[in-house]
């Protein structure tokens, strides 16, 4: 009736990778992307699509932030029968890297009684996560002391927007950053990120 296809195993590996990076903020891992791209959902970048296949289904809602994010969300909704929702209500939010702090503030953050209702944000970084634009520092649960990571200008800008937010713990949202090579970075709600060496100019 069912078989363990490569697709199922890949989604399982993706799940494992997402868990890994979320419990180790500041550590990059790489998703095992399919060599051949499916024809459907053509505009959604491969790493984002794989993560959506892994975590999204009919029981959750999706929304988009930034112009590209909204396009991807609509396509995911159509192709995977995931319900579309307003940004403030969505369980999962797909976004480009250019979202502002005020936009990020709109995401569902859960409540003190139900913090698990906070959103999960998927951010796609077109130019790549790694780079020489600056140094990003990570602290909090899952980080021994402090970790730093050299990142691209786009990630640095996004992190500075994320750093402006302040939620009452345990409320907040989890974020995953993806790039075209399949690199993924997890930033849980309790993670402190700090721009250690900002980009010049």
């Amino acid at each position: 009736m069912f078989t363990l296809t490569e697709e199922v195993l890949r989604v399982q590996r993706c799940y494992r990778t997402l868990l890994h990076v979320l419990s180790r903020p500041g550590t990059l891992a790489r998703l095992d992307l399919p060599i051949e791209r499916k024809n459907r959902l053509v505009s959604v970048p491969s790493p984002l699509l794989l993560a959506c296949e892994c975590l999204l289904d009919e029981k959750v809602t999706v929304s988009g932030l930034t112009e590209r994010g909204r396009l991807w969300a609509e396509e995911i909704s159509r192709g995977m029968r995931v319900k579309l929702a307003e940004l403030e209500e969505a369980d999962f939010v797909l976004s480009g890297v250019e979202a502002s702090a005020s936009e990020l503030l709109s995401l569902k953050r859960g409540s003190l009684l139900a913090p698990e209702e906070g959103a999960t944000l998927f951010v796609y970084v077109e130019e790549g996560i790694k780079g020489d634009a600056g140094l990003l520092g990570f602290a909090g649960p899952g980080v021994k002391g402090r970790l730093s990571l050299r990142v691209s200008a786009a990630v640095l800008d996004w992190a500075s927007q994320r750093g402006k937010l302040c939620f009452e713990y345990p409320m907040g949202f989890e974020a995953f950053l993806f790039d075209r090579e399949g690199n993924v970075l997890g930033i849980p709600r309790a993670c402190e990120i700090e721009v250690l060496k900002p980009r010049r100019g």
Binding site: V8, V11, Y15, L55, D57, E58, K59, M80, R81
Partner: peptide, 10 residues
């Protein structure tokens, strides 16, 4: 645990 990690299709 595996079951909780796979999408629901209806």
């Amino acid at each position: 645990a595996f079951r909780s990690s796979v999408p629901r299709r209806g």
